[in-house]
Design a binder for these strands. Structure first.
Lengths: 134, 134
DNA sequence: CTTTAACCCTATAGATTGTATGGGATTAAG
DNA sequence: CTTAATCCCATACAATCTATAGGGTTAAAG
């Protein structure tokens, strides 16, 4: 299950995508369209800025804006930043790999099947972008 | 990410599947093959019994056994029992549906995409069974 | 009919993660 | 110099995950 962070993020990002090219959009405007905690959204957008999804401008007239066109921002990128691995197990994760300490990865049948699940999810999540969300 | 419960469950279930037809297998034997907390595994197997995956026999010489052949028990069934929804959002879950109170399901683009993810996962998880795990 | 080995049931503890909130610092427009 | 915004970090609160505890019930075997 997706946690709230990416869910809120997607709402904010669609608003930012629709506003593309018109300069920075402040949180106050985003929240007007999607009612939610300003402070919580702030931490989310900050995280997206640190991961090069968003840019920001401080001070009066400032706000956030997309660093790339919406069709170049996949759902997978956002989910990985805010929720971590897309794979059902760390031992089959592409971006968050960790060895499992209590199963043998070579003989373990589960990780092979979970890798299939990972690929099935990724096929959707890397091909779908913010553009599909608008 | 899968929680520990289904992970442990899959290990126990493969042992039970290999033992199929030879009568009930006690927890003590399962744990000998897969070291883990006896008590924790007990609560897991109990949950599977209540959901008609396992049968059990009490008393000396008792234990657990599969109620169906391994090829009729899909990974999806086990995950739903122990981890809940397979869909990334409740509002697109087939077995655990809940209306989202803060988004419009008709106009919300996200749930359409998350339904695609759900279907991609289910395609693997309903076709793969305990048989594939052995 | 007692011992023993097993499952049955419920409560709860401890750790981790998810969901925010608060307060102040920094920046820049007007 | 005032105002409106982001930036940063700490922390509170709640929910879930992981596991443990302890006693109850059942049934086979001697």
């Amino acid at each position: 299950m997706l946690s709230k962070k990416p869910q809120y993020a997607f709402r904010a990002l669609t608003t930012l995508a629709r506003h593309e090219g018109n300069g920075p959009l402040p949180i106050s405007k985003i929240v007007k369209e999607h009612p939610m905690s300003v402070k919580f959204l702030e931490t989310i957008l900050l995280e997206l800025r640190k991961n090069d999804i968003l840019g920001s401008k401080k001070g009066k007239g400032g706000g956030y804006f997309l660093l790339k066109p919406p069709e170049e921002i996949s759902l997978a990128q956002i989910i990985r930043i805010l929720d971590g691995p897309i794979a059902p197990l760390k031992c089959v994760s592409l971006n968050f790999y960790e060895r499992c300490d209590d199963c043998n990865e070579i003989s373990c049948g589960l990780n092979k099947l979970m890798a299939e699940v990972r690929d099935a999810k990724l096929k959707v999540l890397t091909n779908r972008t913010l553009r599909d969300l608008i």
